[in-house]
């Protein structure tokens, strides 16, 4: 086979020489955009409100760095929990067990309906609902009343405020709401796999869970990853909502500096730059994950062929 390819490359006729199509529209558009960019840059550099020096000094202040760390931590932890729960919910939702399927449905319905801010404030104030969280026999006081005995069915407990700190409340709120969205994304991914794949796996004697783990999910990943990247980017930014809980993440700290020093605008710019940087790192990571999961797909073979140098390689 390689012989054929070689002969065709060596005996290839002289490269075609043709005048490429001209694109005058592109030059006009480029000129217009360059002028606009220059005007914008001029405005940004000369307008006093930007206070570039002030921004540069405060954008990396101690509390801001701590806030950035918390933002990353919040994003990673709540996405990890959200994805794990999302996969479980998606599997429950497509289960043949009607009870599991409806539990998943109700969960998704609820957590997609309630705005994240509301959810976060709610979790931040759980301490109002219960002063303590205790683990023990459910309804123990009812049982004690019923049997007329003195029963303490509590094994151990926590103060609500120590268990649900601002950070935990924020993570919980974000993760639970994320799980609902991830469940829908994972379910769409699983539905994109043709039934023939399941037939083939089952005809080989593979169990439902093995089929899911080895055949369906790895293929669904290709469909799942791009929207998950979107979700993660949205999550980085939604951590700013946590300022209401409150937890000391990036936005809370930058805003704090801004209002303390009455230099609101530079800190807004700093916030933009911070989120831009975090999101860009994430996009690079996503690129590599996507590449891993397109193994064997059509786009992947096309890429391989291109890398090997043109349409000749087979």
């Amino acid at each position: 086979m390689s012989d054929i390819v070689n002969t065709t490359t060596t005996e290839r006729p002289d490269a075609l020489r043709a005048v490429p199509v001209r694109h005058p529209g592109r030059w006009v558009a480029t000129a217009v955009i360059l002028v606009l960019v220059a005007m914008f840059a001029h405005m940004v550099l000369t307008n006093d409100a930007f206070q570039w020096g002030f921004m540069a000094k405060n954008a990396f202040a101690g509390p801001v760095l701590e806030g950035a760390r918390n933002t990353v931590l919040l994003t990673v932890v709540s996405m990890a929990i959200g994805i794990a729960m999302g996969v479980i919910l998606a599997i429950m939702r497509s289960s043949t067990n009607p009870i599991l399927a409806s539990i998943a449905w109700v969960y998704i319905w609820f957590f997609r309906a309630v705005p994240r801010v509301v959810l976060l404030v709610l979790f931040g104030n759980l301490g109002i609902l219960y002063a303590r969280f205790e683990i023990g026999i459910p309804f123990d006081w009812l049982i004690a009343d019923l049997l007329n005995i003195d029963l303490s069915g509590r094994f151990f407990g926590f103060d609500a405020r120590t268990l649900i700190s601002g950070f935990v409340a924020a993570t919980l709120g974000l993760a639970l709401s994320e799980a609902a969205y991830m469940a829908e994304i994972v379910r769409a991914g699983m539905q994109s796999i043709p039934q023939g794949q399941v037939d083939a796996a089952e005809s080989l004697g593979m169990s439902r869970s093995l089929t899911l783990r080895r055949i369906i999910l790895p293929q669904a990943m290709r469909v799942i990853i791009p929207p998950t990247g979107n979700e993660t980017i949205a999550m980085i930014k939604d951590t700013a909502l946590v300022a209401y809980v409150p937890a000391y993440e990036l936005w809370f700290q930058l805003q704090g500096i801004g209002s303390r020093t009455f230099q609101v605008f530079p800190m807004l710019v700093a916030a933009c730059l911070w989120y831009l940087a975090l999101t860009s790192v994430l996009m690079v990571v996503q690129h590599f994950i996507e590449r891993h999961f397109t193994k064997g797909s059509r786009t992947d073979s096309a890429r391989l062929r291109l890398a090997r140098g043109g349409a000749g390689g087979a």
């Binding site: 043709p194 023939g196 794949q197 037939d199 083939a200 796996a201 089952e202 005809s203 080989l204 004697g205 055949i215 790895p218 293929q219 999961f293 193994k295 064997g296 797909s297």
Partner: peptide, 16 residues
Amino acid sequence: RREIGMVFQQFNLFPH
């Protein structure tokens, strides 16, 4: 099922 092999019209190989 593992004692019974099956071959499909659309092959149904695992593409990954």
